[in-house]
């Protein structure tokens, strides 16, 4: 457990009286695909929002450790720094593309920071320095690379809002990858995909991990995806972690079964008694 890329410790998030995440601790290992699962409203997206800085946690610590050894306390960074400096990228449960911009432009926006530097914070760009046009050409090449990987090359010049649901999800992943993240957080990437698209997605995620060394943290309801590609699963229910382990360990866990099957309270107690809680 020493090489954790992300370490979440005692994370608690309250909204008024509602405890969406309750004292959650887990590690995501470098190079792993870590899945966070749980029934609807369990608090998964809230955990993501805390990690990527959209919510400030009520309590707890989130540590991101990069390849070079640099450490960042994510709960203290403003959201854009988490993507820029700490190198954590994410996608959204309800897709958030720039729908009036073309697919290619979406990927160029994702390369904002390096391009901004290349344009001399716009001054060089306004003056038309060739170094900026070179940088933009490289950015387009990188975008083309990811378009190819996601099978979107033909749609590059179409508005993102024109894409079907599946390709939109793929584009969101490509866009996140264009920021060159070390940790990629995916919020239900397979939601709404048909089985064939789901398989392609699995392949893409594996490719990302293999070729780019990016670690993945993913929320997923589709158990086939979870069981197939994840190395490590964290299970949440009502904001609390109820299980943590390899996919097969988690699958056997009676508490997980109880949470998913939604057994009566009395039965939960029975199951809990059996497990010795």
């Amino acid at each position: 457990m020493s090489d954790a890329i992300l370490r979440v410790e005692h994370l608690t998030m309250r909204f008024g009286g509602l405890v969406a995440v309750n004292d959650l601790s887990f590690d995501a290992r470098r190079g792993d695909i870590t899945a966070v699962i749980g029934p609807n409203g369990a608090g998964k997206t809230t955990v993501f929002n805390c990690i990527t800085g959209f919510y400030k946690p009520t309590q707890g610590r989130i540590t991101m450790r990069q390849k070079g050894g640099a450490e960042f306390l994510l709960e203290r960074l403003p959201d854009f720094r988490i993507a820029r400096t700490a190198k954590v990228a994410r996608t959204f449960q309800n897709i958030r593309l720039f729908s009036g911009m073309t697919v290619l432009e979406n990927l160029l926006v994702a390369q904002h920071n390096p391009l901004m530097a290349a344009s001399g914070w716009s001054i060089g760009g306004i003056l038309g320095l060739p170094s900026y046009w070179r940088a933009e050409k490289q950015a387009i090449e990188k975008a083309a690379y990811w378009l190819d990987k996601c099978g979107l090359t033909d749609r590059a010049d179409d508005p993102a809002g024109d894409l079907a649901y599946g390709p939109q999800r793929a584009l969101e992943i490509a866009r996140a990858m264009c920021t060159e993240p070390e940790l990629l957080c995916l919020d239900e990437p397979a939601a709404g995909l048909n089985p064939r698209e789901s398989l392609v997605l699995n392949e893409l995620l594996r490719f990302i991990r293999r070729e780019h060394g990016t670690s993945l943290l993913l929320i997923e309801h589709d158990m086939s995806v979870v069981m197939e590609i994840s190395d490590h699963v964290v299970v949440l229910d009502y904001g609390t972690k109820i299980s943590d382990g390899t996919p097969s360990q988690v699958r056997e866990d009676p508490k997980v079964i109880a949470a998913y099957l939604g057994v009566d309270d009395s039965e939960v107690e029975k199951v809990e008694a059996e497990v010795g809680l």
Binding site: D79, A83, F92, F98, M101, V109, A110, N113, A176
Partner: peptide, 18 residues
């Protein structure tokens, strides 16, 4: 591009480090 992206979706912009 960031301006236009901001007009389209500010939250997505922040998630991209803008």
């Amino acid at each position: 591009r960031a301006w236009e992206a901001l007009r389209e979706d500010e939250i997505a912009c922040r998630s991209l480090g803008i």
